Amino acid sequence: MSLHEITKIEGGSTSSKAGGSATDRICSSSEMVQLIQKVIAEVIGTYMLIFAGCGSVVVNKIYGSVTFPGICVVWGLIVMVMIYSLGHISGAHFNPAVTITHSIFRRFPLKQVPLYILAQCLGSILASATLCGIFTVHKENFFGTVPTGSNLQSLVIEIIISFLLMFVICGVATDNRAIGELAGIAVGMTILLNVLVAG
């Protein structure tokens, strides 16, 4: 064995016939496991978000026991709970807009964006299917809010509340000067306010 080969081995830059050194394979498999955990966390978080939030709307529509302020509180609380439960695993995006924004500002790897969006869509579809299976939903029922003003007014208010949400998320979740432990409370309360104002 030559001195050059020994130096390469000591430096960890050699590769085996199986396609990379043992260290490279361990790192690669570890990264894959972490990515799978992140995707699963996004599915679970989005599922719980839609199940609780939309579930409160359905329960209120059928039984009238939740009330509109109660629905607002449910949305805010479920977002806060999921951020604290899963934020350390996946970053708790639960929304393609959040994932894309983090990617634009280079706080999130671009190659993981499609997986996150797929996980979020899957979680929301599964939650919707669960609600359809649990509750008797008739075609004439509509479990949502109908704009009270014009389409333009609705568009403007959606832009404002979306800006507020992304402003808060970027402020508390991506800036090192913010107190990270309060991110869940800040984002959850922003969701509560947005639902209270805009439905």
Rank of each mutant, 00 (worst) to 15 (best):
E42K: 08
E5R: 05
G70H: 07
V187E: 04
L3H: 14
V58K: 12
M80D: 04
G87M: 05
A129T: 07
K8V: 09
F94I: 11
T145L: 11
G171N: 14
V57I: 15
S90T: 01
V197M: 13
L49Q: 00
L131W: 03
I36E: 04
V59C: 08
M48E: 06
I104F: 11
V113T: 14
V74G: 04
V57S: 07
Q37R: 15
S124P: 00
I157Y: 03
S124Y: 01
L3K: 14
S85H: 05
G149E: 04
V98I: 03
G64I: 14
I157T: 05
T148F: 01
S162T: 15
S154D: 04
F163K: 10
G180R: 03
F105Y: 12
T14R: 00
P147K: 15
S2G: 15
F163H: 13
N176C: 08
S16Y: 13
M1N: 01
C72A: 14
Q153A: 05
R25N: 14
E181A: 11
L35Y: 10
M32H: 06
E158R: 02
L193R: 06
A52Q: 01
M189H: 03
L86M: 01
L110H: 10
C132A: 13
S103T: 07
I50K: 01
G91C: 10
A129D: 07
V73M: 06
P147A: 12
L131C: 09
I161N: 04
V168L: 00
L126F: 00
V33A: 12
A129F: 10
S28N: 09
F105G: 10
T174R: 06
S103L: 01
P147N: 10
T136D: 08
S128T: 02
S21R: 03
M82E: 06
L49P: 05
G91L: 07
W75C: 10
S13M: 11
E42F: 10
L77E: 04
L126C: 02
Q112T: 09
N151I: 00
E10H: 09
F167Y: 15
F142Y: 13
V81G: 01
A52C: 15
K17Y: 07
D175I: 10
L152M: 02
G12Q: 13
I78L: 11
Q120T: 10
V39Y: 02
F143P: 09
I117C: 02
G19Y: 02
S15D: 09
I40R: 13
S65F: 10
V146H: 14
S124H: 00
A97E: 08
H93W: 00
Y116F: 12
E158D: 12
G188A: 05
S2W: 12
S90N: 04
I26C: 01
R106Y: 05
T46E: 11
N151P: 07
D24W: 08
S29K: 12
M80R: 02
N60S: 09
P114T: 12
K38H: 11
P96A: 14
G76K: 04
H138E: 14
G133D: 03
G64H: 13
